[in-house]
Nucleic acid binder design. Structure first.
Length: 210
DNA sequence: CACCAGGCAAGTA
DNA sequence: TACTTGCATGGT
C-alpha cells in the first residue's frame, strides 16, 4: 500500500492537483467532473471565470440558462446545474469560511454533504480533501481497476466505504498523502495503460479500460 | 462507429 | 441488497 504510493511518487513526482485553483473552483469542479473528463471540466470552468461567475453569490444568482450554456461541455448539464445549486446553497448557508470545515470531525461533515441531492461519496470526499484539506481518502474507478490488478481482486466490486477504510487504515492520516496518492493513481492509469499491460515507467500493472 | 470520461439518483426485483 | 437506466458532450 504505502510501498505502491512511494513507487508512484518517486516515478511521477507530486501532481499538485487542485491546490492551484480557488476553493470554489475545486468545489464546482468536483460536481462537474462526475463521470466526465477533467479536460471538459476545465473548459467549463474557464467559461464561468470569463463571465465573472466564479463566486458563490455570482454563480447562484446568475441566469440559469446562461450557466447551463457555459457548463455545456461537461455533459449532463441540466442535472449538474441543479446539483451545483444544491451544493452552493449549502455553502452559502454555512459560510465558506465557517471554521467547522477546518475543525469539525471529517465524517460529520461528510454526512452533511451526502445529505445534499447530487453529492455522493466520491464527490463529498473530493471536496473535503481537495477544497478543505481534510484527511479522507478518495476512491474512484481507477483505484478499483489498478488495485484489482495488484492483488486486491475484491476491490473491483467492493463497497466504496470498505475500500476507503482499507486505504486509510494502511496509510498515515495525512491529507497530503491522500491527495497525492489519488492523483498519482489517476495519472498512472490515464497515460500509459491503454497500450501496455505493465507501466513502462513505474513497472506497476496498467489497468486497461474496462 | 463504439466506447469512455476523476458519478449520482431513481427505479426495479 | 444488487442490478439497471437516464443524464449529454467531447475525445480517441
Amino acid at each position: 500500500m504505502i510501498e505502491i504510493y512511494n513507487k508512484l511518487y518517486s516515478t511521477f513526482g507530486p501532481q499538485h492537483w487542485w491546490p492551484t485553483g480557488t476553493q470554489l473552483e475545486m468545489i464546482v469542479g468536483a460536481v462537474l467532473t462526475q463521470n466526465t473528463s477533467w479536460h471538459n471540466v476545465s473548459i467549463a470552468i474557464d467559461n464561468l471565470e470569463k463571465n465573472g461567475l466564479l463566486g458563490l453569490i455570482q454563480l447562484i444568482e446568475a441566469d440559469k440558462d446562461l450557466v447551463k450554456d457555459l457548463i455545456k461541455p461537461v455533459g449532463f448539464f441540466n442535472i449538474k446545474y441543479n446539483r451545483l445549486m444544491n451544493l452552493l446553497e449549502y455553502f452559502t448557508e454555512q459560510g465558506l469560511d465557517n471554521p467547522k470545515f477546518m475543525y469539525a470531525p471529517v465524517y460529520e461533515l461528510r454526512q452533511e454533504l451526502l445529505a445534499i441531492k447530487g453529492i455522493g461519496r466520491e464527490t463529498s470526499d473530493s471536496i473535503l480533501l481537495y477544497a478543505f484539506g481534510r484527511p479522507i481518502f478518495v476512491v474512484d474507478a481507477y483505484t478499483r481497476r489498478l488495485f484489482s490488478r495488484l492483488g486486491y481482486e475484491w476491490m473491483e466490486k467492493a463497497d466504496y466505504d470498505e475500500i476507503q477504510q482499507l486505504f486509510m487504515a494502511n496509510l498515515p492520516m495525512e491529507p497530503n498523502i491522500y491527495n497525492e496518492f489519488h492523483a498519482l493513481i489517476v495519472r498512472h492509469c490515464k497515460e500509459l495503460c491503454k497500450k501496455n499491460p505493465i507501466c513502462s515507467e513505474c513497472n506497476l500493472a496498467c489497468p486497461m479500460n474496462k
